[in-house]
Design a protein around this nucleic acid. Structure first.
Lengths: 356, 356
DNA sequence: TATTAACACGAAACCGTTTTCGTTACATTT
DNA sequence: AAATGTAACGAAAACGGTTTCGTGTTAATA
């Protein structure tokens, strides 16, 4: 049922000329020394004479010898791979986090294996099991919505029980003992809401998701806190709780038609940008008639018209911090583990959807 | 120099209780049989008696035995990992391709290792070398812009010479013999341009990038072909060639101010959406006064105002096709290789930035 | 009863490394 | 001349599996 089916196929035949990878054994045979000597020579060991080392190193270079990672992993019981499991790879925030992870990890010689759970509990479990059997040294992950809904974290506990370090980011849980990185979602929502209050808005709406999503819960709390602290009552009719982060155009339209608001906070950028469109279609001017703030500083916010004021989550930074925490654990030999939760400060990026 | 620095850090101490993974050896010792017997029993070999098999399987299940992937990889010389190297992970098109790759690959028991080259030749080489030493069974990749600029593909040739299958997608080259998947970029641009011509536009502009990027070249060609075929001359002053896919607001503003156009085709969605903003700021109505079409069917096009007509590249499909081609090669034992180039058909997704 | 076949299991090689612990051969010391 | 030291290298175990090829035991066959 796909559009975009193969249109043309061009073929070409070629005889394979496989000069497969050279191993220590090959070098040893060729140079009539033992495997151990070759191994040591290539590590520049003091044990081997200058002559022999030079000969072996030259030969290895000539034939472009590269040690086999798999063999080294088996021997060292260390893979230098980090497993990353995220709910959605087509989401700006998560991909910036991956970027941060890659940046830090690659610089330290680690590869990043990315799996997306697609917001599914089962896929999260399958992916983790797949990777946990030796493929990776540790996990960095953000929980799928289904996992947060089921509130079942046995797959995480199994992994940590095996001594595999885990760092949770953004969508976390208190049920698992491990390192965590989040932004202060409550503060972010609080700041955003306060910004709109300070601009004189009194009827501030919120589009969020059900409370089982840890981040939405915190953002909702921040929103309410800001209202309460500034003497505004929390009016449930101004809050739309979607069942997930998925776009639901109809519900948002309904909400927009039927609620009396002069400002809107949303837990992602799509909800906000879509709402702005609805407002514009109704002839409202932004930000004169209505203000908008979303979460996530992605392309959408940047290039929407008007551009959207957002709570930036600093995904790259979060990824770097997560990678740093994980690698530290992976490389540590400490008997006693200490788990940390790092809380990053969100930033309000002010654009044209709010009054300046 | 980061914003979003750690705000709070909470600590927690816990004694590690590592019950490390159980191995065949452990089971053999415990049950007083040989390792080979355990291995066979767990594979339900006919060689082993029912009694023994049941005993061993029960024990393995009880202790949650899982074979070590690394050991299996070493033995089989097959990792069941696919290496994906893309220029940019924070880009909608590439991330949808990853999705397609993951979808197909996971269903067949393969993991996906994602590395981004960040449009850098060096990072592309490094990443490939890292993965080529045993970590993966094959590559799926899209060339970095720097690689296409340098026109240097030795790292790819080295890899294919070693017998590691490679599938190139989207940003490809004819210099390397391997499987390829692309969309018909020329046709996509042609269709889009024709669409605007059919609507009566006579002064169609193009924002593209320098020709070294394979896709931009093809799209530029398609644009020119459509013009020529319809009796319109190609006016260089209506073409803006940026040096890369990076956003350059100033150049686009200049172009927009100084060129006389009534329609605009761009090689990605950002250029188009940004241009729409400029048009709106000038008081133009879209699509009445001017039409816009971009490439890539991402969130931006979908939620821009007005929504953007685009040439959809079917990333998911492309990923699936690429994964399928790669896995076929990986699992094939054919002596003679046949290389294919599959060309997917792009689709015009018509929205509000063009007249219907 | 001797031979053979089937059954059930184990020994050992192998994948490609690293690393420990010999073991030579020669030089140095007493 | 005997003892010791050292430089330079190799053998072998180990990592955790798979797989081939025995081998001993029992049951079926001639």
């Amino acid at each position: 049922m796909y559009i975009g089916l193969p249109l043309k196929v061009t073929l070409k035949l070629t005889r394979a000329k496989v000069k497969s990878k050279i191993t220590l054994k090959d070098i040893a045979r060729e140079l009539e020394v033992s495997i151990s000597t070759v191994s040591k020579a290539l590590k520049n060991s003091e044990e081997i004479s200058r002559d022999t080392k030079e000969k072996i190193q030259a030969f290895a270079k000539l034939y472009n010898y590269r040690p086999n990672n798999i063999a080294i992993s088996l021997k060292n019981k260390r893979t230098k791979n980090i497993g990353v499991v995220i709910p959605d790879i087509v989401h700006h925030f998560f991909t910036t986090v991956i970027r941060g992870i890659e940046k830090y990890a690659n610089a330290r010689g680690y590869n990043v294996i990315v799996c997306s759970s697609d917001e599914s509990f089962d896929r999260e479990v399958i992916n983790m099991e797949m990777l946990a059997n030796g493929s990776i040294d540790g996990f960095i992950m953000s929980l799928s919505s289904e996992t947060q809904l089921k509130n079942d974290y046995n797959h995480l506990k199994e992994v940590t029980d095996q001594g595999i370090p885990v760092v949770l980011f953004d969508r976390i849980t208190n049920e698992v003992e491990c390192d965590k990185v989040i932004i202060d979602d409550l503060l972010g929502a609080y700041t955003a809401t306060k910004k709109m209050i300070d601009q004189g808005r009194k009827k501030i709406g919120l589009i969020t998701t059900a409370d089982y999503l840890s981040v939405s819960k915190a953002r909702t709390d921040g929103y309410q806190k800001a209202l309460t602290e500034h003497g505004l009552e929390v009016d449930e009719s101004r809050i739309l709780k979607l069942s997930s982060m998925e776009m639901d155009e109809e519900l948002i339209q309904d909400f927009f038609e039927n609620s009396d608001i002069d400002a809107l906070l949303t837990v992602n950028e799509i909800f906000a940008v879509y709402s702005m469109r609805l407002a514009q279609k109704k002839g409202m001017r932004i930000p004169e008639d209505m203000s908008f703030i979303g979460f996530t500083d992605g392309f959408l916010s940047q290039y929407a018209y008007p551009s959207l004021t957002v709570v930036a989550q600093h995904g790259i930074r979060m990824g770097e911090v997560a990678a740093q925490m994980l690698i530290e654990k992976v490389e540590s030999e400490a008997e006693v583990e200490t788990y940390q939760t790092k809380i990053l400060e969100p930033t309000l990026v002010v654009r044209d959807s709010t009054i300046n």
